[in-house]
């Protein structure tokens, strides 16, 4: 069954068209990688799936669990199970990670008509999920991303993903700025969260990450359209031939 289906998506910002008709279908349990050079619409696509309102969607639709979600606000999409791992996680001084996650979990529960999670259960969940990304105890008390290194910020994204347990995780350039150890931790975190019910979209422009998170399908987003789709071998081909090769396609 398809979890996400994007049909002919066109989007622009300040009159400049960035997505020029994207089609994509993702079934439950699958991992899809979206590759492509910088500035060709990968992050835009990710933000629009998450519901960011700064883009004008001029054409096309997004179906999630076979429901059109174009009119759902950002927070409702999150509560429905869509998670965006940010390329540049935002620093929020004064909001602790614990308070942030507590608020997020309880607002998602409220959306689903559930009571707030008891404090004890929440603390246990934090304890458990911290281990997924080998997070140190101190990280949880600190303000969200404030003063974090690049690696800590990305670990924190995966930690949040583990806490929120999404059905569709979109990881936008999760590998950028990571050293090899951090990359291994982040990738094994993502792999630990995979299940037959959940799907993942991994956005990257290096093949390296895909050695750790092995995709079922690879798509190439080039100049606002998906110009080529294939299996993981496509990633090797891209690595070898470079993105210029795509111009000939």
């Amino acid at each position: 069954m398809s979890l996400l289906e994007i049909k002919n998506l066109h989007a622009s910002i300040n009159g400049k068209e960035i997505l020029k008709g994207v089609d994509l279908k993702i079934n439950k349990g699958e991992v899809h990688a979206i590759m492509g050079p910088n500035g060709n619409g990968k992050s835009t696509l990710a933000s629009i799936i998450a519901g960011k309102e700064t883009f004008d969607v001029t054409q096309g639709e997004i179906f999630y669990n076979e429901k059109n979600i174009m009119d759902l606000p950002i927070e409702a999409r999150a509560a429905e199970g869509i998670f965006l791992g940010f390329q540049y996680p935002v620093e929020i001084p004064g909001v602790s990670i614990a308070n942030f996650m507590k608020t997020a979990i309880n607002e998602q529960r409220k959306y689903k008509g559930l009571d707030p999670m008891p404090a004890k259960e929440f603390l246990q969940l934090m304890e458990e999920k911290k281990k997924v990304v080998e997070m140190t105890a101190k990280l949880a008390n600190r303000s969200v991303n404030e003063g974090f290194s690049g690696g800590e910020k990305k670990k924190n994204e995966i930690f949040q993903m583990a806490m929120l347990n999404p059905t569709l995780a979109i990881l936008d350039e999760t590998d950028s700025g990571l050293d090899i150890d951090a990359l291994r931790i982040v990738a094994s975190g993502v792999n630990a969260l995979r299940s037959p019910e959940n799907s993942t979209i991994v956005i990257t422009h290096y093949q390296r990450l895909l050695d750790y998170i092995v995709p079922d399908f690879v798509h190439v987003l080039f100049e606002g359209r998906i110009v080529k789709s294939g299996t993981k071998e496509l990633a090797y081909e891209l690595e070898e031939k470079g993105y210029e090769w795509l111009r000939g396609l």
Partner: peptide
């Protein structure tokens, strides 16, 4: 910051509260 908070399921109103409170903190 608003987009980041809301993308985790926090309503617009609560996200504003969190940011304002953080500003005071």
């Amino acid at each position: 910051a608003m987009f980041y908070l809301r993308s985790r399921g926090i309503s617009e109103r609560s996200a504003k509260m969190l940011l304002m409170y953080a500003f005071c903190n």
